[in-house]
Nucleic acid binder design. Structure first.
Length: 269
DNA sequence: AAATTCAGCAACCGCTTCTAT
DNA sequence: TATAGAAGCGGTTGCTGAATT
């Protein structure tokens, strides 16, 4: 049977967009809003595939896009988010206002990879390049629970579900590692709760465990991807006994707490 | 000055996920 | 519950301009 093609390829333009096409697309979306991409080209008088229109709008024509070079702060944020989320470019882009997944992906491949390699860091695993390859493909090594200080069984079970879920459950500075904000495990895990690394404090994944964070997850549910929505579904049964890692990791002062702990005056835990 | 190589990035393709019926 | 269609995502390709030979 097969799926019908997303567009009539014989009658669609490909390649670079012209200014006229851009203007048509902008005009149409300004007056009708973003809607059905499949029918948009015809309605807007464009000989383009709907997917192509969507991509053009999202990546280049949207008015809220931030053009120009990435700042050093953005670089570091991308690196840290990538260490947590992997190649989930859309999730990473969601934490960088005005940047698109495609832009970040390209920037990663052309700049940041090299930057990390020059630092002696593997861009995929975020481990030192000299480290042995014994590490698993996952972001965390769950074979060694001792590397996860102060985690409850519930949290550990949650974190063991899969790599993405593991990483998104960490809040307030990914302090499960050596304090350098790499999510990879280290050869010598420090059993003491560490304060968030100063570079990590800028990251607010807002994905901490508990009632408060659960509500924050719901916030994006309408457009969330499956990993997030699955995460939400699986969190519900655990909510009653869930705790925030801010507390588990020993963050006591307001400045160290995640947004939920701050806004809930500690009720997050 | 011409040819070649390289880097950056826009766009495409195919697969997965979501949603409506 | 199953299915089809639409949207979204990530990997890859290929074009363009800059740098190098």
């Amino acid at each position: 049977m097969g799926r019908s093609p997303c567009c009539e390829k014989a009658h669609t333009n490909k390649g670079a967009w012209t200014k006229e096409e851009d203007q048509r697309l902008i005009n149409y979306i300004r007056s009708h809003g973003e809607g059905c991409w499949r029918s948009l080209p015809k309605a807007a008088g464009l000989l383009r595939c709907g997917k192509s229109c969507r991509l053009r709008w999202i990546n280049y024509l949207r008015p809220d896009l931030k053009r120009g070079n990435f700042t050093e702060e953005e670089d570091e944020l991308i690196i840290k988010l990538h260490s947590l989320l992997g190649n989930k470019w859309s999730l990473i882009a969601g934490r960088l206002p005005g940047r698109t997944d495609n832009e970040i992906k390209n920037y990663w491949n052309t700049h940041i990879k090299r930057k990390l390699i020059s630092r002696g860091v593997d861009p995929q695993t975020h481990r030192p390049l000299t480290a042995t390859t014994a590490a698993s493909n996952s972001q965390f090594d769950f074979g060694n629970a001792s590397q996860l200080p102060s985690l409850s069984l519930t949290e550990f079970a949650l974190m063991s579900q899969n790599t993405l879920k593991q990483s998104t459950l960490i809040t307030a500075g990914e302090s499960l590692d050596d304090g350098k904000c790499s999510s990879g495990t280290t050869e010598e895990a420090d059993p003491q709760p560490l304060p968030p690394h100063k570079n990590c404090q800028s990251i607010d994944l807002d994905l901490s465990i508990g009632l408060g964070p659960y509500h924050s997850l719901i916030r994006e549910s309408s457009s969330s991807n499956s990993a997030e929505s699955k995460l939400q579904k699986m969190e519900v049964p655990f909510a009653a006994e869930a705790v925030c890692l801010c507390w588990q990791l020993g963050f006591q002062s307001v400045g160290q707490l995640c947004n939920n702990c701050q806004s809930n005056q500690g009720l997050c835990r």
